[in-house]
Amino acid sequence: MERTFLATLALTLSTLGLSAGEIAPTAVTFVDGSVEASLTGVAGDPTRGREIVGNKSMGNCVACHEVSDLSDVPFHGEIGPMLDGAGERWSEAELRGIVANAKMMFEDSLMPSFYKTEGFIRPGKAYTGEAADDTFGPLLTAQQIEDVVAYLSTLKE
């Protein structure tokens, strides 16, 4: 009986795109904009985080932010603050909150909420330009958020 329950739970989580230790976008707890708990329980990989920050089809952070470490990526934006020194300006919990949903810390932020699935006026499906359908999920996975946080934490001035 227990084995059947665990198999059903694993299948349900996998269908939702979640792993057993992952916090769903609707279950993230923000305290003053920060998210203390890891979204996955797995340490982020700063190398993968760097790729996500600079990848125009993933995080696309460089569309709005300049990052000196990503000088190999063209066309950095100037809308958001420069990310050099982000690991000194904000704690890991603050970075996690900002990347997951910047509006929880900075109400007037133009930054997209990378780990949010509801409360939108008119959501689209990732970067496709299409309307959301029943597969609508966050722009980044929980592990990708952890990877970005790990990378941003390395950015010291």
Score class of each variant (00 low, 15 high):
E107Q: 09
G41V: 06
A102V: 07
G119M: 06
V148W: 10
G49R: 09
D133K: 04
E146F: 03
E88I: 04
G87K: 11
T135E: 13
H65D: 03
V53A: 15
K125N: 11
K116H: 10
I145M: 01
V67E: 08
G85C: 04
V149Y: 05
V99Y: 01
S14I: 03
E51L: 13
N60M: 05
K103A: 02
S113N: 05
S34Y: 03
V42M: 04
V73M: 07
P25S: 12
R122G: 14
V53C: 10
D32V: 03
R50D: 08
A7L: 14
K56D: 11
F114T: 09
C61L: 02
A131N: 13
T128F: 05
L140K: 04
Y127Q: 12
G21V: 03
F106T: 05
C64L: 09
P74W: 00
S109H: 08
F75V: 10
G77R: 02
P46G: 09
S109K: 01
D134K: 11
G17C: 05
D147L: 06
A93T: 06
S68E: 15
K56C: 03
P25I: 06
S109I: 01
E130C: 05
V149K: 05
M105I: 00
T135P: 03
N101I: 08
L11N: 12
E88C: 07
S113H: 02
L13E: 06
A37L: 10
A86S: 15
G124Y: 10
H76K: 13
T12D: 12
I52D: 01
V99E: 07
E94K: 07
G129T: 09
Y115I: 07
A100P: 01
L152H: 08
E157C: 00
E51H: 10
S57H: 10
L39Y: 05
A20K: 12
V149A: 02
G119F: 00
I98H: 06
A24N: 13
A10D: 15
L6Q: 15
G59E: 07
F5Y: 14
L139M: 09
L70S: 00
A142D: 01
H65K: 04
V73C: 02
G33I: 00
V62H: 04
Q143F: 05
L155A: 01
Q144K: 03
K116L: 15
G33R: 06
L13T: 01
D84M: 09
R50W: 02
T154D: 01
G49Q: 00
P74T: 05
L18N: 03
E66K: 13
L39Q: 02
